[in-house]
Simulated assay, not measured.
Amino acid sequence: MNKLALLVTALMLFSCNNNAQNNPKQNAVIQATPIEVPMENGLAKAYFASGCFWCVEAIYESVKGVNEAISGYAGGHTKNPTYESSNTGRTGHAEAVEVIYNPEVVSFKTLVDVYFASQNPTQVNGQGPDNGSQYRSIIFYQNAEQKAIITQKIAALEKQLGQKVAAEVYPFQKFWIAEAYHQDYEKLHPNHPYIKNVSIPRLNKFKQKMPEVLK
């Protein structure tokens, strides 16, 4: 394929992704009333999207008070998203994680701090080498208190950086669990080239930034 054809293809994909993020169904998701997930056995749930879910799952599972992080999809307007469909950029969904945590040990505010400390907060539509709307950063709130925590953190971070934070802020609606082979991927595939070259370095960089929260 010549350079002109590649450029046309890229522009078409970019247009498709933009249309997926700017349509009535997606706008309804963004404007919806947040759904609050009830606690179970003293554990709460929080939802974050920040690039590849393999990376984000491993980061949150390194934090004290987090029992488990599950990879999946959230933020879109389609039902039953899959890895293949989300990768088209037309579902509205982003790769996300469900963080199951003990609020007596770690607060939602700290989980938000972990979120921003473990990514490039100014990168739009992706993290590191992963680009596209399915890799965009979204932070989900379930109530007004969580939304206030998020917006205050973003305002402070933008003032500190002198740049706009790329993360979108969505009312939580639904989390779709990803295919079984995506779960615990970093732990189960430590020699995978992506894990060795992207995921583990990202985890280690986060650990250096917030050693006080680590297990």
Rank of each mutant, 00 (worst) to 15 (best):
N23K: 09
I59W: 03
T122V: 15
K174V: 11
I35G: 03
N131V: 12
M1R: 13
V124T: 11
P211E: 08
P103Y: 03
Y73M: 00
V56H: 08
H93N: 08
K174N: 10
A58I: 06
A32I: 01
A10G: 12
Y73G: 00
T33F: 04
N67S: 15
Q119F: 06
F53T: 05
N102R: 03
A117S: 14
F140L: 04
A155S: 14
M39V: 01
Y181K: 13
S86N: 12
V169I: 13
L7F: 11
A46L: 01
K205E: 12
V198Q: 06
V169R: 07
S107W: 04
N41M: 07
C16W: 10
S107G: 07
A32T: 05
V213Q: 09
Y83M: 12
K64M: 12
N102M: 02
G89W: 00
T91P: 05
V106L: 01
T33L: 08
Y141W: 08
K205G: 01
A180S: 12
V106M: 02
E68K: 13
L13M: 13
A94Y: 08
I30P: 04
Q26V: 06
R136H: 09
Q119M: 15
S50M: 10
F48P: 03
N67G: 14
L157Y: 09
I30Y: 06
N19I: 15
V198D: 05
I154W: 08
A148C: 00
A46C: 06
A49W: 10
S85K: 11
I200M: 10
Y60N: 06
Q183L: 05
Q127W: 03
A5W: 10
I30R: 11
S50W: 01
T9C: 08
K45C: 02
A180W: 05
V99E: 00
G76H: 10
P34L: 04
C16A: 13
E95Q: 09
V99M: 02
M12L: 15
